[in-house]
Amino acid sequence: MKYTLSGRLLRGEQSARLLLLLLPVLIISAAFFLLPLARLLVISFEGDQWGANYWQALTEARYLSSLVDTLLLSVSVTLVTLAISVVCGLFLARNEFAGKSLLVSLLTFPLAFPGVVIGFLVIMLGGRQGLSAELGLMIDGSRWTFAYSIAGLFVGYVYFSIPRVLLTVIAAAEKLDYQLEEAARSFGASRYRIFRDVILTGLKPALLASGAICFATSMGAFGTAFALATDINVLPMTIYTEFTLGANIAMAAALSILLGLITWLVLFLARMLSGADASPAA
């Protein structure tokens, strides 16, 4: 009875074909991502005592301060970027005027700039020969510089984050249901209440998702700090230093795992809370 098996055979044939199509990605992912990550995890536990590296990372002043500084920096960058993007995004989504699409293009074209280049742009703004230095010379005769301090990093990260957060906010603002606002008005709600209860609530999923991405990229950003070449110890710089100068691979691995856990967790939580897709897709 050949034919009785037909359904199963065909289905089996189909699954085999699908598996074959997936196989290359499976191999790449297993060999060059999962395996290395596992090795990283194993190495992060090497040392005198089990978990000593993690203990050290969370207790020793230089690691802890690096972690806390990076967290604070990333949180403030996220909040400021969200505020700027909500104002600009709502304005751009709700008004039509000549040159609007050009304005949107100009605001979002630095989307593709890598961190190093943004570091250089910050030097252009706040470095020793930068715009603010010229301004300072004109006003009080001293060169105002901020590029090489934590302020430089802050400006750079905000610059880096504005395009992607702004795009998400514009897209979400365009999808807001105007009838909700009109309904709120019919109840006599004030502008402030409408903004808080209707608009911000409507934007919340987008803000959560893009805010999480902004936070995660700020935590892991390396290029800007590198280009500014300061002694600011953001976590990625600390990891880099441990690895190259200190040759403390186990410590670098432990810090990397910590950093990866934090960024992954924040993105995961945002995805759970917003129901939207939180990933740094442009």
Partner: peptide, 21 residues
């Protein structure tokens, strides 16, 4: 697009097409 459970048979004229996709 679907295939019958074991024991089922589909014929087009005299041709058994049960296992043809």
């Amino acid at each position: 697009l679907e295939f019958p459970d074991e024991g089922g048979r589909i014929l087009f004229g005299d041709e058994d097409v049960t296992r043809l996709p």
